[in-house]
């Protein structure tokens, strides 16, 4: 057996646990769900093949388009917020200075709080009458002279309020991915850049960021996938309101499946979300692979 052949075999063997797990606990249910999406699927009894009916039903549903639109707006706004905070804190924590370990721990703290609890606590902080954040905002002149600020008053303000919570909660995840990437960059690159007389910003721009590409790709893919699948924060904090203006795709899916008991259309919604995200992810992988 040639060396290459052996290496190929060893490689397959090593990747097989991951593939088996994936096949059983992901691909199999996924195929099932795909199958469901082409059927009228009652809770009991025989499913009936309906072809593309579920998809047609869904596309004709205004609620689907509203939620799709909102989900995109949310993703487009929250992703840059998360990324800017994450890269900023990652660079701060990667500096060779006293206290970085401490800062890193603090920035990571919100991540480990359970999402539901965090949503409830922020809901409380945002409370019109007893919310500390609202006091602070009113102090800075938001809410006019009557001091009757309520962040849930409009769809847009609701979204920004949730964005702030999500940024607080999740930038730590991206930060830690970026830090792992930063630590993998060897010091000689910085030394070389320094010898060439580059300023700190130039070094970040020309050395750090290009070398950080794979980690940035991962951080962005995760954050976009997470935002397209946003659910808990909106269920708890806005309940999709006011007047359905903050209903996300996954909320709509859960409503379909578990509140309206329409399992077929719910399955087709899952498939659609998957296709959207697959396209977005492939695009991102392409973008970040260039010149790398």
């Amino acid at each position: 057996m040639s060396r290459l052949r052996k290496e190929q075999l060893v490689g397959l063997l090593m990747v097989s646990p991951a593939l088996i797990l994936l096949a059983v606990f992901f691909l199999y249910p996924l195929v099932n769900s795909f199958y469901m999406s082409f059927h009228k699927w009652p809770l009991f009894g025989k499913p009936k093949w309906v072809g593309l009916d579920n998809y047609i039903f869904m596309f004709q549903d205004e609620r689907f388009w509203e939620s799709l639109k909102f989900t995109f707006v949310y993703t487009l706004t929250v992703t840059p917020m998360l990324f800017v905070v994450a890269i900023g804190t990652a660079l701060l924590c990667n500096a060779k200075a006293w206290g970085t370990t401490f800062f890193r721990s603090i920035y990571f703290l919100p991540v480990v709080m359970s999402f539901a609890t965090a949503s409830y606590v922020w809901l409380w902080l945002y409370s019109e009458m007893y919310g500390v954040i609202v006091y602070a905002l009113e102090f800075f002149g938001f809410g006019g002279e009557n001091k009757n600020l309520n962040v849930w008053k409009t769809g847009t303000s609701s979204m920004w309020a949730v964005n702030a919570m999500v940024t607080w909660k999740f930038s730590g995840i991206q930060m830690i991915i970026l830090i792992a990437g930063l630590q993998a960059i060897r010091d000689d690159y910085y030394e070389a850049s320094k010898l060439m007389g580059a300023s700190r910003w130039q070094t970040i721009w020309n050395v750090t960021l290009p070398l950080l590409r794979p980690s940035i790709a991962l951080a962005l893919i995760l954050s976009i996938a997470g935002s397209i699948q946003a659910y808990e924060q909106f269920v708890i904090m806005t309940r999709g309101g006011p007047s359905n203006s903050t209903k996300t795709l996954v909320m709509h899916t859960v409503d379909m499946g578990f509140d309206y008991f329409k399992l077929g259309p719910a399955a087709s919604l899952g498939v659609i979300i998957m296709i959207i995200l697959f396209i977005l992810t492939v695009i991102q992988l392409r973008l970040f692979r260039k010149n790398y």
């Binding site: 809901l123 409380w124 409370s127 019109e128 009458m129 009757n148 309520n150 849930w152 008053k153 309940r239 309101g241 006011p242």
Partner: peptide, 9 residues
């Protein structure tokens, strides 16, 4: 703002 009040409020 009662139109955007929730139960806990």
């Amino acid at each position: 703002n009662v139109d955007v009040w929730d139960w806990p409020d």
